[in-house]
C-alpha cells in the first residue's frame, strides 16, 4: 500500500513540477511528511532525488525543442551550486540539532512568499521585455521561441544578470536546505528580476533544478537523508508524471500555468506552516 501511495505522490509531483517549473518537491515533501508520516529529513531527501528526475525528464524535451535557454541556465548555475552547498550543510546541522520545525516553517514561508509574487505578476497582461543592460550582451541573454498558444515567434532578452545570480544563490540554498528544486525562486529570478518570458523561465528552470539538486545529493547521501525504498517508487512515479506534464506545457497558456502554480503554493504552504507551528 505504501509503495502505491509513493508512486501516486510521484506521478502528481512530476506532472505539477513539469508544467509549473516547480520541480515537484513542493508536492513530494508535504505529501510524505504530512500524510504518510515520513520523517522530514527522508521526505526532503526523497524530494531532492525526485526533483533530479522531474527536472531531467522534462528538460530533455525542452532542450530538444530549443525552448530552454542553456546560456542563461548555466551562467546562473554558479549561484545555485554555491547556494546548494551552503544549504545542504545548514540542513545537516539543523537535523543534527533536532530543529526539524524550522524546516516546516521555512517551507511554508517559501511557498507563501512565492505565491504572493506570482499573484502580483498576474496583473501584467502580456510579456513585456525590459530594457537591455550590460549583462544582456555579455552573457548573451537573448533568444526566441514559438508560442504554441498564439503560434507567434517571441523574441526576448534578459537583463540584470547580477540580481538574477543573487536570487539564484538563495534559490540554491533553499534547495539544499529543503530538498526542493527551488523552481519557485528560479522562475521568479528569471521572470521578475531578469524579465524573461514565463515559458523560457519554466523550461530553463527545469534544466537548472537538476544541476542544483545533484549538487546537494552527495551531502544528503553521506548524512543518511536518502532512503532507497522511498526514493525508488517516488522517482518512478515522477518520471511518468513529468512525461505527461511536459507534453501539456507547450500547449498551455501562460496564465493557466500561473493560476495552477499559485493554488498549489497556497494550499501546501498553509499545511507546512501549521505543522511547523505544531497546529496541523
Amino acid at each position: 500500500m505504501l509503495l502505491l501511495l509513493l508512486v501516486a505522490a510521484g506521478v502528481l509531483a512530476g506532472f505539477i513540477g513539469a508544467i509549473t517549473g516547480l520541480g515537484g518537491g513542493v508536492v513530494v515533501v508535504p505529501f510524505l511528511a504530512l500524510y504518510l508520516g515520513v520523517p522530514i529529513a527522508y521526505a526532503t531527501g526523497t524530494s531532492l532525488i525526485s526533483t533530479i528526475a522531474t527536472s531531467t525528464g522534462s528538460a530533455r524535451s525542452y532542450i530538444k525543442e530549443r525552448i530552454a535557454n542553456m546560456h542563461i541556465g548555466v551562467s546562473l548555475e554558479i549561484g545555485t551550486t554555491l547556494g546548494a552547498i551552503t544549504g545542504s550543510l545548514i540542513a545537516a546541522e539543523v537535523y543534527a540539532l533536532h530543529l526539524q520545525y524550522i524546516i516546516y516553517i521555512l517551507f511554508g514561508l517559501v511557498l507563501f512568499g512565492s505565491s504572493y509574487f506570482s499573484i502580483r505578476k498576474l496583473k501584467m497582461k502580456n510579456f513585456v521585455p525590459g530594457k537591455a543592460d550590460w549583462s544582456t550582451k555579455l552573457f548573451r541573454l537573448n533568444g526566441s521561441f514559438i508560442d504554441e498558444a498564439t503560434k507567434k515567434k517571441i523574441n526576448y532578452h534578459g537583463r540584470r544578470w547580477l540580481l538574477g545570480l543573487a536570487i539564484m544563490f538563495i534559490a540554491g540554498m533553499l534547495s539544499g536546505l529543503l530538498g526542493i528544486g527551488s523552481g519557485v525562486l528560479k522562475v521568479l529570478a528569471m521572470d521578475s528580476a531578469m524579465t524573461l518570458p514565463i515559458k523560457v523561465t519554466t523550461t530553463t528552470s527545469d534544466f537548472m533544478i537538476g544541476v542544483t539538486a545533484a549538487t546537494s545529493s552527495g551531502i544528503y547521501w553521506e548524512r543518511g537523508f536518502l532512503q532507497p525504498l522511498l526514493i525508488a517508487p517516488v522517482v518512478l512515479g515522477v518520471l511518468v508524471g513529468a512525461r505527461l506534464g511536459s507534453k501539456y506545457l507547450v500547449k498551455l497558456n501562460s496564465r493557466v500555468v500561473r493560476y495552477l502554480f499559485i493554488v498549489v503554493l497556497i494550499v501546501l504552504g498553509s499545511q507546512m506552516l501549521l505543522r511547523g507551528l505544531g497546529v496541523f
Binding site: 505504501l2 509503495l3 510524505l32 527522508y42 531527501g45 553521506e222 543518511g224 532512503q227
Partner: peptide, 14 residues
C-alpha cells in the same frame, strides 16, 4: 524494515 516510513535503513546506515 525497508519499506516503512520510519525505517532506520538509509544511505548512512546501509
Amino acid at each position: 524494515s525497508l519499506i516503512a516510513a520510519n525505517t532506520t535503513v538509509n544511505t548512512r546506515t546501509l
